[in-house]
Each structure stands twice: as C-alpha cells, then as structure tokens.
Simulated assay, not measured.
Amino acid sequence: MLSPTPLPIPPILKSSTAKRSSATSTPTAPSAPIDEAHTPSANATHTLELSAPQNIAQPNCLLNPPAYPPLSRRREETGTVLISLMIDKRGTIERATIKQSSGFKHLDQAAREAALSSQCRPWLENGRPIRTTSDIPFIFKLEG
C-alpha cells in the first residue's frame, strides 16, 4: 500500500509595514532570539495530516460477541448495529460509537459494550503501526 503524499506548503506572505514617523513612533523592546527547538517546523502540519486514522475494512481484532439483552429477547427485538471503532497504534480500542442504530437502545448498548471489550492487534503500514478506524456490524437475531 502506498503512503499518502503530503501537499506542498503554501508560501507565507509577508505583510507590508507602513513607515512611521519618528515623532509618533514608540520605542519597541528588542526581540528575543528565536528558539528553533520550540518553533514549529514546516513538517509539523504534514505530521498531523498523516497521523489521521486510516479506515480499514477488516481490523485485526478478536471481537467479543454481544450478550443478547434479556429485555430485548423477551420483546423479540432484532436488528443490526453498526459500530465505528477507533483503534490506536497499540491496538487498543480508543472509541466505539454507534454509526447506525438497530432501533433498539438495549441492542445498541450491548453491541457498543461488546466492541469496547474486544481486543485488537496494531495495524501495520510499511512495517509501522498506525491508528485506524473500522465499521463493524453486530447482528442480533433470535434463533428458533
């Protein structure tokens, strides 16, 4: 898989300063030397852009099956919940959000809890772990 190519950095336009007469100008303090270690480099913007999570179809996860909520079972509620996972560079699930509801809050919550209790391995791109997102469907259906 190819790595994203950073966009070129637009040049910084210098603002023109108006000349002031010496009668109305106020003295300015000498400027402090610039500490380049604390000055953001031109690559800082690209680092942020490249660290955005990449969406993948099949994460390296061992997904825990959701427990069918007893109330939903009694009410014969069924449906599919689409959960959006955000997985960090260590493979930890940072966030699980309901992207598409089943229409039943108990099923939605059970799917989210199952996703958060699941375990993943880091996704590698060019041999390096990266943050990823993935949409996972959890299907609730009654057998029998």
Rank of each mutant, 00 (worst) to 15 (best):
T78I: 15
S16G: 13
S118F: 00
S22K: 13
P59T: 00
G127W: 12
T78S: 11
R128Q: 15
S102Q: 03
S3D: 11
E36D: 07
A29R: 10
P40H: 06
P8Y: 09
A96R: 01
A42C: 04
P33W: 01
I98Y: 02
R121Q: 10
A115Q: 04
T39Q: 08
G91Q: 01
E76A: 06
L82T: 05
A57I: 03
L107R: 05
D108H: 12
S118V: 00
G127C: 05
A29N: 13
S41Q: 09
A29P: 06
K89S: 00
E49M: 09
S118P: 02
T78V: 14
L116G: 02
S21L: 15
W123H: 10
P66Q: 06
A23Q: 06
L48Y: 10
E94W: 01
R90M: 03
T5W: 13
T26H: 08
E143A: 12
S15G: 02
R73V: 11
E49I: 08
L116Y: 01
G144L: 06
H106E: 12
S41N: 07
H38W: 08
N43A: 11
A32Q: 14
I34W: 01
F138R: 12
G79N: 05
P59G: 02
S3P: 12
S21P: 10
Q109S: 12
A110K: 04
S102T: 02
T45A: 14
